[in-house]
Write a protein that binds this DNA or RNA. Sequence first.
RNA 1: GCCGCGUUAGCUCAUUUGGUAGAGCAGUUGAUUUGUAAUCAUCAGGUAGUCAGUUCGAUUCCGACACGCGGCACCA
Length: 425
Amino acid sequence: MLTRIYGTAWATEKGLEQHLLQIAEAEKRDHRKLGREMDLFHFQEEAPGAVFWHPKGWTLFQSLINYMRNRQDEAGYVETNTPDMMDKSLWETSGHWDKFSDMMFRTEAKDDKIYAIKPMNCPGAVEIFKQGLKSYRDLPFLLSEFGKVHRYEPSGALHGLMRVRAFTQDDAHIFCTEDQITQESKTVCDLILSIYKDFGFDNVRIKFSDRPEKRVGDDAIWDKAEAALMQAMEATGLEYTLNPGEGAFYGPKLEFVLRDAIGRDWQCGTLQVDLNLPGRLGATYIGEDGNKKIPVMLHRALFGSLERFTGILIEHYAGHLPFWLSPLQAVVATITSDTDEYAYEVQKALVSKGIRAEIDTRNEKIGYKIREHSNSKVPAIIAVGKKEAEDKTVSVRRIGSSETKTFKLEDIVTSLSKEAKSPIE
RNA sequence: GCCGCGUUAGCUCAUUUGGUAGAGCAGUUGAUUUGUAAUCAUCAGGUAGUCAGUUCGAUUCCGACACGCGGCACCA
């Protein structure tokens, strides 16, 4: 009988200790554990790889979407929404069916058609572009969509929020001319990095992936697409690594990679240059010379998968989300029931300024409440007792600190509502 | 999907060779009105993932399946 034994070896006892400590630290940051503890989401057997978002998790998710929507508005995108199911024939035309049909969910209705549940948003975007006659003056044409896509990922690949079968992309498709590829790509790179900075990610790895073995389009088109993307990459002056043969089947791509708590890398943002699908799906515009031309399509996602980005964020902050992202920003905790009335007044004042605040008037000691709300990662615990009620003040304890500071009620409302704004407001 | 491992209360875990399960926390109820990380007591909580097999008897042994964990492969 053959027996396999696994193990790790360390040069010193200290090295081993450090390793074990690191594992323990990573476990504390694990988004699957924190997701349960913070009551953000759950999974269950009936829907493997699909998220049940709880109220607090969905609040966080929506904060991310709102932020992204603002950034995209600012950058000139117009938002769209396309059907979740479309006839199989569309996916055959796009080439997805040929390469990914066994990883696509499909369904049927009473008619004889087979509908595919979308694994990507791009064909839908092309169909919107195709409506009405487009001129070169309309380019670049920036269509965004928060699209929920489904992919039958291999069972062994599923991993918490990081790898799921149903996820939401902050997707967009930029229709442009070949001459515009470099500028548009550079703009996207700058946008991604600026956004990541707002979430505390300063070290983003970028990978350049070129033509894979299984692909559509002839080599001349690939030469052109790769050269254009490479040129854009050079124009940004950013560092990147080559990832040969790892591009999409329709074009080369950039991957913006973030690292989780235990050092695993995950592709988040992406930018893909596509000289194939617009032609296959029949998109055209009228050029300066009055002739029909086929536009270039840049696929891009900034967070990538909202689910994955949320998972990375939770691990990055070890659950201590920045105030503006916290689903529950403040809890007003009473010391005795004598001050319940004032506590409600405090909570009301906070909520009226858009702060997500709850109240805890339970018959428990203040130490108990502090412990509980600290464990659930509430960024601001606001204690009110007799003293505070008399002076119209509050005693605030911030997460990660054991210090208590006293503020006038109106001052804390002002400063917290300032803190509650997203970085671009 | 592949290799290995796992699945016992809401959560974290215990149940020495097969004799149908126990704790802490959470929850209930009651008392306590409390000043910054756990007040005390009380009660309740389970077809041991599912199905099948061996056995007088299965949480325990065998098998299949589901889901999960670690890695691989995959990742539009």
